[in-house]
């Protein structure tokens, strides 16, 4: 089972992407999509050997909801800041210490930070212990780091690590 389906989640995802790309639900396309979804992970296995395991689907769904909502809020906030006086901005570099060690969790955390509250992740330290974040406008740097840790890192840790 593990040899035939190295990434069980990737197969339906690829099939879905294929159907969206062709914009059709014809039975032939579904079969072709599933076939591609089965074959591509097999060939991509050498690049991505470890299996992704999601432990808490509920947390994942809640996390996705929180992130989508935050993307909207962050966009409105950044738009407002751009339209305001550039001189009033208080940009800062903030170091966020990391608790997660799972690679995928770190990448998703970095991407989430880029998409949300007026921050861009700039650099992951060599030992993977901390993430350097640039923020557009901050009051309190420690508070920002604490928010990122509580709002995004904690659920990711729960989803990917125990």
């Amino acid at each position: 089972m593990k040899r035939l389906l190295p990434h069980p989640l990737l197969t339906p995802t690829l099939a879905l992407v294929w159907l969206l790309l062709n914009n059709s639900m014809a039975p032939g396309q579904i079969i072709l999509g599933l076939l591609l979804g089965w074959a591509i992970p097999l060939f991509a296995l050498p690049f991505w050997p470890e299996q992704v395991r999601i432990r808490h689907w509920g947390t994942l769904l809640r996390f996705a909801g929180v992130v989508l909502f935050d993307i909207l809020v962050a966009n409105l906030k950044v738009a407002w800041l751009i339209l305001g006086q550039p001189r009033n901005l208080r940009p800062a570099f903030v170091v966020v210490p990391l608790d997660v060690s799972h690679e995928l969790a770190i990448s998703i955390l970095a991407n989430t930070i880029c998409l949300t509250p007026g921050t861009v992740s700039a650099h992951l330290s060599e030992d993977r212990q901390s993430l350097l974040v640039h923020a557009l406008d901050v009051d309190d740097q420690d508070e920002l780091a604490a928010t990122i840790k509580a709002r995004y890192e904690a659920p990711l840790k729960e989803i990917f690590e125990c």
Partner: peptide, 18 residues
Amino acid sequence: RLEDFYTRLHGPTKATTL
């Protein structure tokens, strides 16, 4: 409009994506 590269980075990555 913004004044240094690191703040400029925020505009295109967020507002434009939405």
